[in-house]
């Protein structure tokens, strides 16, 4: 499912603000800065996110012709996530705590010792977990100042908004019913919209 094939599932945004005249150069640098980078070998993060090309998530480098298509910017948000199974994590922590007790020759561990063990186990397990890879397409229509993001999941949209705003320095406003109504009427008539209360359509009146 995405820009190049499959079904359509998307949320639409208004891009607030102007695209600079030298956007080709500026955005090339910005996209490169926020391009996807794999987990480092000693990485302690559970998730990494960044831009990849919509035509190939695994090909490195994002020169202009990999994202500027006509008057649209097409990119894919790649999010790799490492998940440590919680039960296995707890078991490993218990095992390590037992070893620690034996070594220290006492029954009770301090809170700081427990935290240290948990951090150690987490680091070790993160190195062994294979990440799940997810890519979600984005199209920014520069003429319409609209961005489409191929997911309706809140968490994915939050990650997208954050990365978009960091990369391009422009805010995104979801085109939800109220914000679209505001655009239809004009921001200066916001008070007219705010006075509107939910209607009752069923015959015979209601609430």
């Amino acid at each position: 499912m995405g820009l190049l094939s499959g079904g359509i599932r998307m949320r639409r945004y208004r891009v607030m603000g102007d695209v600079p005249p030298d956007f080709r150069d500026r955005y090339e640098e910005a996209i490169q800065t926020h391009a996807f980078q794999d987990f480092a070998s000693d990485d302690e993060r559970e998730q990494v996110a960044g831009w990849v090309g919509a035509n190939d998530w695994f090909e490195p480098g994002l020169p202009l012709d990999r994202w500027l298509v006509g008057s649209t910017i097409c990119l894919t948000l790649r999010v790799d996530t490492k998940r440590i199974p919680s039960k296995y994590f707890k078991l490993q922590c218990r095992r390590r705590e037992a070893e620690w007790r034996l070594k220290a020759g006492r029954e009770d561990l301090t809170r700081a010792e427990r935290d240290e063990i948990a951090a150690l186990v987490r680091r070790e397990l993160l190195e062994r977990v294979i990440p799940s890879v997810q890519g979600t397409d984005m199209v920014w229509d520069l003429d319409r100042r609209e961005a489409w993001f191929w997911s309706t999941a809140e968490k994915a949209n939050e990650t997208f908004r954050t990365l978009f705003e960091r990369t391009f320095g422009l805010r995104l406003r979801p085109l939800f019913p109220y914000s679209l109504a505001l655009e239809v009427l004009g921001e200066d008539r916001a008070e007219v919209l705010d006075r509107v209360a939910p209607a009752w359509f069923a015959p015979g009146g209601g609430s």
Partner: peptide
Amino acid sequence: DTLDLAAGKVPSVEGDPDEGWHGTAL
């Protein structure tokens, strides 16, 4: 709630080999 689109089907696109993925995207 959101005016999100889901499970959308659009007409299929015949890719032009000369234009590559840019053509399909457009």
